[in-house]
Design a protein around this nucleic acid. Structure first.
Lengths: 350, 350
DNA sequence: GTTAGCACTCTTCCGGGATGAGTGCTAATA
DNA sequence: TATTAGCACTCATCCCGGAAGAGTGCTAAC
């Protein structure tokens, strides 16, 4: 059987209608809804075909039809009209000079959640590859040395190290130079045992400190590679009866609280991302188990300097795809402009 | 009317039974449950008295009785037998050397949630008063200066500052000395405009940097004063039908995601804390609106060095108070021991 | 003071009838 | 041949009423 123009129109009408109401759509409704001027009987025949082809399904005999995952997929791929959504409020809020990355991202999540009425997640940007930029040791008091580690992208980590032997300012200076000349510009895989041994030899009595610093560096880079994720509007799932039953809601809320799985989800976004950076997972397509009754739309954003992060929106399968995707695109450009205008990645703090 | 010994016993039996089953308790049940050897009719008379006195109530005529907030309060204050709960799993998990505060606290929240089957929250410890301990400026590259700010309790904040004029190493050193001698050991309220003016004068051409550093210091201290809160087991609320309906659950989940109100809740713990550091809020007693159908048990913990934080457990009013309080006490001592044995506050990172 | 007994209340559960939305099929129509 | 009107049928939902059962309050007897 072929999916002719008329069938497409009917499918589209079914989906549009279902997105709005959340109720199964009957043939009579379609007959009035479209400009096809067909009787409900004809629509019924066509709908029977569409069902056979797997685009729609019936919750039970004598109910209307609802879109299947396959139907949604076709809709998203070929029928959607992206709505250029204004995110006025967002613009205003962002403009209040936000120079702290964390606050900015939390706010993005919040505004998106309020705007779309779905649950949102935003990951902090990551640099492409984490190179060590700079190390500085300085004394805090007699037995404590502060190690500051700056990673490419100006992400900064601190560690306080305990020392037993006292250390002169001069030794500290030497150690600083030694560490920076040896390790500066390297990424974690490039630091090998050979270097460490050489440095330890040169450090002599203070070789312990070298080990501790190396550990701290490794940990700092690793920590930066673990995504930080901010969520908002988790409770929006209660707006959609198909997600609000206890078992499903509980699983979803757990996923949003634990964040582990969200990380995997957003990680996938990077790997499979197309040119626009927007992706849609419908129902079973999602990599996260607890979201198999949801749709997830993800977008990547860039803040310049190779700093990329991603944004996700989680809602029911009858999500307003047009609007969500439009909104995400707006946010993408807004974040882009924000960077151009006034955001300096160097201001990132940890 | 007086609350004699027999009435107390009956009240206790009602509460115990209700805690277990969650169902209204009838007179026949009590008559068998207790060792009073009274008929159900007698119990009924006593229960009518208890209801008149406000300790129990009837959901509707011809239902059994459930405890009122006042009843729970009496129970918690005078009838409870704290159960020395073993938190074996906890012990094991904590012992895997956790030198990162954040992970430790997240784990505490998680273990507690698993152990009690309620929702938990843990705040990061705060120092009593945030004094500035140490400032260090160092050059990252030509136009970027890294400012490291160490606050009492070894909490570290970083800022990267943009500079237009180049700056010699010597100038940087001078600035460092100037900043540390002027500001070291002061807390935020003690830094006044006079000092700032004097420093700016001394800094001459680089007075801009001084302003920026001061701003950074103020922000760092302010940021540290905002509590960081970790939550776990929010979805446990679905285990208790009296909290699991959509409206209540949604509100609660929102409270746990936003964290703002949790902060206020834990803040109260500090202010009203008694000697044991454990407090119980029953129903309407809680300062958080969305928890008016819950009970909240909070505890403060101390990690030495004046670093105090708090822990909260949120569940239904028919919470197993005995066990929760026992568990919290165990955690208190365990955290205490942890500090003694191997936890060094200096290892806190940001 | 305690208890047995009984009438009464109120919730919960279940089955059945009415309602209505929507279908599939058939036969008539353009 | 495609479309449509008409009709019988299905199924979920709603509402009602009766039965069951838990538990009470009251009274009268112990």
């Amino acid at each position: 059987m072929e999916l002719d123009e008329r069938k497409k129109k009917i499918l589209q009408a079914v989906i549009r209608n279902y997105l709005e109401t959340g109720e199964p759509v009957g043939s009579r409704t379609i007959s009035k809804f479209t400009d096809l001027n067909l009787s409900s009987a004809t629509i019924r025949n066509e709908m029977a075909d569409l069902e056979e082809m797997g685009y729609i399904l019936q919750p039970h005999t004598s109910a209307g039809r609802i879109p299947s995952d396959k139907g949604y997929r076709l809709y998203v791929d070929t029928m959607m009209e992206e709505k250029a959504r204004e995110v006025v409020e967002m613009k205003e809020m962002l403009v209040e000079r936000q120079d702290k990355m964390e606050l900015l991202l939390k706010q993005v999540a919040k505004v998106l959640a309020q705007n779309t009425q779905y649950a949102t997640l935003v990951s902090a940007p990551q640099t492409e590859r984490n190179k060590l930029k700079f190390i500085q040791l300085s004394r805090v008091d007699v037995h404590q040395i502060l190690a500051v580690i700056v990673i490419e992208g100006n992400v900064i980590k601190n560690n306080i190290l305990q020392v037993n032997e006292e250390m002169s300012d001069e030794t500290l200076l030497k150690l600083n130079i030694l560490l920076n000349t040896t390790l500066g510009g390297l990424c974690i895989d490039e630091i090998n045992l050979g270097m460490i041994t050489v440095m330890k030899e040169q450090a002599g009595i203070h070789s312990d400190i070298v080990s501790e610093v190396i550990d701290a560096v490794a940990e700092a880079i690793r920590a930066e590679e673990a995504l930080e994720i901010y969520t908002s509007g988790t409770n929006n799932i209660f707006r959609y009866p198909e997600l609000a039953d206890q078992e499903k809601a509980s699983e979803l809320i757990n996923t949003f609280e634990e964040k582990q799985q969200l990380e995997e989800l957003l990680q996938e976004t990077f790997n499979n991302g197309d040119s626009t950076g927007i992706q849609v997972y419908i129902g079973e397509e999602t990599p996260v188990q607890s979201m198999r009754d949801c749709s997830v739309v993800t977008a990547t954003y860039e803040l310049g300097g190779g700093m990329k992060g991603s944004i996700g929106i989680v809602g029911p399968k009858r999500m307003d795809y047009d609007r969500v995707i439009g909104t995400l695109r707006t946010i993408q450009t807004q974040l882009d402009e924000l960077y151009k205008d006034e955001f300096h990645p160097g201001e990132k703090k940890t």
